[in-house]
């Protein structure tokens, strides 16, 4: 359904006066999602995961440079196709309820996402499906509870008949019941044939619902693994960072490794994780490893087996 090949994104910034510099924020990224699959992108803040969503939707800022290809349904996703498809075939579920128009009743807001057919009828049907009764139509966003607002966001994403859904941090700081409800909606949509890209910093959320997980670190994908590999002490995981992330969870060892993710300002050669890695060797410092297949997953590490 969606295939991203060798995607790199960089920003041009003015340093002093007219002197420009380029900051690379995503390097050489490859992911693939099929129909009915949920792929979670997991990474800490500043790892570049939201930019990937923006690249797919074609809403990167003007000073961003992009290279590589994005294929949707087998054909290249050009700017023209992005404009045509986003909002209907390609839908976006945003992070926060603040993305709803505060001065517009939610019923008409969702109707505005319907491009063809009987608008009112389609909106009612989708609200029914998410247990939003007819009184909800004429409420403003501030009158909704957190859970209801989530359902409205999901409804407005799928009302246009989406085939690819990009969900950017759909559940932060929500109560477990609302989290499970939102994730349940995503699973249901996937089971109906949607391809879903779930972007989150919370590996627990990702494990609950995704089929496979891509781990981001400093703008590169360091590992793509099936969810079942996240178990025990992380023996089946491939990259040392993924293992560290798994073992730092409170339900596991709660044992953090030292250091932090290098920022994009500090340009790195070699593997960006090398300063925190116990397997570090000279090649890790000199050259970024290529991503390769290891045991039904992918990893970008010289030492992974």
């Amino acid at each position: 359904m969606l295939e991203v090949n060798n995607l790199s994104i960089s920003f041009i910034q003015y340093e002093k006066g007219l002197k420009q510099k380029t900051i690379q924020v995503i390097s050489d990224l490859n992911i693939k999602i099929s129909k009915g699959e949920i792929l979670a992108i997991v990474g800490s803040s500043g790892s570049g995961k939201s930019l990937l969503a923006h690249a797919i939707l074609g809403i990167l800022p003007k000073n961003a440079l992009m290279s590589g290809t994005i294929l949707y349904d087998g054909r290249e996703l050009t700017t023209k196709r992005q404009k045509k498809l986003r909002g209907n075939e390609i839908a976006f579920i945003p992070q926060s309820v603040n993305f709803l128009d505060p001065l517009m009743k939610v019923g008409s807001q969702v109707r505005s996402s319907v491009s063809a057919g009987e608008k009112k009828e389609k909106q009612r049907k989708i609200f029914d499906r998410y247990s939003l009764d007819s009184r909800t139509d004429s409420l403003f966003p501030f009158q909704l509870s957190g859970g209801m607002a989530r359902r409205v966001l999901v409804a407005s994403a799928v009302v246009g008949g989406a085939k690819l859904i990009v969900a950017d941090e759909p559940t932060p700081g929500l109560h477990p019941e609302v989290v499970n409800e939102t994730l349940g909606h995503l699973r249901e949509l996937a089971n109906q044939g949607c391809a879903i890209l779930l972007i989150t910093h919370d590996i627990g959320t990702a494990l609950n619902v995704a089929d496979s997980i891509a781990v981001f670190y400093s703008g590169i994908t360091i590992e793509i693994s099936p969810v079942s590999d996240f178990s025990g002490k992380g023996e089946s995981l491939r990259h040392p960072y993924t293992k560290a992330l798994w073992n730092a969870l409170p339900q596991n060892d709660f044992n953090p490794i030292d250091g932090f993710q290098p920022s994009h300002i500090e340009q790195h050669s070699g593997c960006p994780f090398n300063s925190r890695c116990t397997f570090k060797s000279s090649e890790c410092v000199s050259k970024l490893p290529l991503i390769r297949d290891v045991r039904f997953g992918k990893v970008r590490c010289y030492h992974a087996t």
Binding site: G43, S44, S45, P172, G173, H201, I203, A244, L245, W246, A248, L249, P250, F254, N255, P256, I257, D258, F260
Partner: peptide, 17 residues
């Protein structure tokens, strides 16, 4: 008050330690 909700697991464990 939810001081590590927005953070990744490693940073969360570092801060709580």
């Amino acid at each position: 008050d939810e001081i590590t909700t927005m953070l990744d697991a490693i940073t969360q464990a570092q801060i709580w330690n």
